[in-house]
Amino acid sequence: MTRTVLVTGSSSGFGRATVRTFLAQGWNVVATLRDPAAWDGEASDRLLVRALDVRDESSIDTAVTAATQRFGHLDAVVNNAGMGLFSVFETTPQSVIDDLFQTNVYGPMRVIRAVLPVFQAQGGGRIVNVTSSSATVPTPLQAAYGASKAALTVFSEGLEYELADQNIQVRTVEPGFVPTTGFFTQTSARFASIPAPEAYLPYIQKQIAAFDVQPPAGYLATEDDVAATVFTAATDESGLTRFRVGGDTLDGAAARRQSDADYDAWRTAQFA
Rank of each mutant, 00 (worst) to 15 (best):
R3Q: 02
V5H: 03
V5K: 06
V7W: 09
S12F: 09
S12T: 10
G13D: 09
G13K: 01
R20K: 14
L23A: 12
A24L: 14
A24P: 15
A31F: 13
L33V: 06
P36V: 04
A37Q: 15
D40K: 15
R50W: 05
D53L: 03
T62R: 08
Q69A: 13
F71D: 04
M83S: 01
F86R: 05
F89L: 12
E90R: 09
E90W: 07
P93V: 11
P93L: 14
V96A: 01
L100Y: 00
G107T: 02
V111T: 05
V115M: 09
A121N: 03
V128P: 07
V130K: 08
S132W: 03
S134A: 13
P140V: 10
S148Y: 00
T153A: 12
S156N: 03
L159M: 07
A164I: 04
Q166W: 04
I168R: 10
T172Y: 06
E174S: 14
F177K: 02
P179C: 01
F183Q: 10
F184H: 08
R190K: 08
F191D: 02
S193L: 07
E198R: 12
Y200D: 07
Q205M: 06
D224T: 13
A228Y: 05
A234L: 12
E237Q: 14
T241G: 04
R242M: 01
G247L: 01
G252F: 11
D262P: 11
D264P: 03
A269Q: 15
F271L: 12
